[in-house]
Simulated scan of single mutants.
Amino acid sequence: MTIQTLSPADAKRLIEGGAKLIDIRAADEHARERIPGAINVPLERIDTVDPGNNAIVFHCRSGMRTQANADRLAAASDAPCFILEGGIDAWRKAGLDVHIDSGQPLEIMRQVQLTAGGLVLIGVLLGFLVAPGFFGLSAFVGAGLMFAGATGWCGMATLLQRMPWNRRKAA
């Protein structure tokens, strides 16, 4: 089954008509920023969706995850399925309501990006300014990111999830 994309305005009309809005992002992403009324069903649990007789509109942040997984999303239900074109970013740009909870921590992957980037920068600066051995820090972080990309397991993300600021329950 082919899954169609909808503009934010068309998706809003369909949702107002009874369609379910499903956010396929991770729980930490949904807790920080979400479209009011969206149900969070992370992509890894998408097979648990039960829309009843309602159409489903799937969304992510930019639309890339939903497009990349369109076949899987369409197979998740017998109900008519659609993708919100451009995701929550396009929804926000269209001037539609988005709930932001700035009290929630940044998404884990953004934390990984900030931490990894900071460690690489520090390693390079210390390598040039103090001792060449500090370049090893940048190499270590780069190797860790390569390993994460190859295996799907990120040690830095696992460590960051255990930090005190990330122990809050998702809303």
Score class of each variant (00 low, 15 high):
30 H>A: 00
132 P>Y: 11
30 H>F: 07
54 N>P: 09
72 R>N: 03
53 N>S: 13
25 R>T: 05
124 V>T: 13
147 F>N: 07
53 N>I: 12
99 H>Q: 04
158 T>H: 15
80 P>K: 05
109 M>A: 12
35 I>F: 05
169 K>E: 13
131 A>R: 14
104 Q>T: 03
95 G>V: 10
147 F>Q: 14
89 D>Q: 07
9 A>V: 12
72 R>L: 00
152 G>I: 00
21 L>C: 01
34 R>L: 14
22 I>R: 00
102 S>K: 15
25 R>W: 01
68 A>M: 10
101 D>S: 14
115 T>R: 10
82 F>A: 01
131 A>E: 09
144 G>K: 08
42 P>R: 06
91 W>P: 00
133 G>K: 08
167 R>K: 12
127 G>N: 01
56 I>V: 01
156 M>C: 09
55 A>R: 04
118 G>Y: 01
31 A>H: 13
160 L>M: 09
149 G>A: 06
80 P>E: 14
77 S>K: 02
154 C>S: 02
144 G>R: 04
14 L>M: 04
55 A>Y: 08
51 P>T: 13
92 R>S: 04
76 A>V: 11
129 L>Y: 06
100 I>G: 13
10 D>C: 01
134 F>C: 12
79 A>L: 10
52 G>K: 10
28 D>H: 09
135 F>C: 05
1 M>V: 15
56 I>W: 05
159 L>K: 04
49 V>T: 04
51 P>A: 13
140 F>N: 15
41 V>F: 14
29 E>G: 07
119 L>K: 06
61 R>T: 11
155 G>W: 08
170 A>E: 15
139 A>M: 05
150 A>Q: 11
93 K>L: 08
141 V>L: 13
144 G>L: 03
163 M>P: 05
120 V>Y: 05
50 D>F: 08
118 G>D: 12
31 A>R: 09
41 V>L: 14
46 I>F: 07
70 A>L: 00
15 I>V: 11
65 R>D: 07
123 G>K: 00
148 A>M: 10
8 P>E: 11
134 F>D: 04
19 A>Y: 09
154 C>R: 04
171 A>L: 11
90 A>P: 13
118 G>C: 06
91 W>E: 04
35 I>Q: 03
12 K>R: 15
27 A>M: 06
24 I>Y: 01
166 N>E: 12
168 R>K: 05
104 Q>I: 06
44 E>L: 14
34 R>Y: 11
4 Q>F: 14
33 E>W: 05
137 L>A: 08
136 G>T: 12
129 L>G: 08
152 G>K: 02
122 I>V: 15
167 R>A: 13
130 V>R: 11
55 A>T: 03
91 W>R: 02
119 L>R: 03
48 T>K: 11
39 I>D: 00
23 D>S: 00
165 W>T: 08
11 A>W: 07
135 F>R: 10
18 G>L: 06
32 R>F: 09
138 S>Y: 07
10 D>R: 01
150 A>D: 12
171 A>D: 15
41 V>S: 14
114 L>W: 13
5 T>S: 14
158 T>G: 15
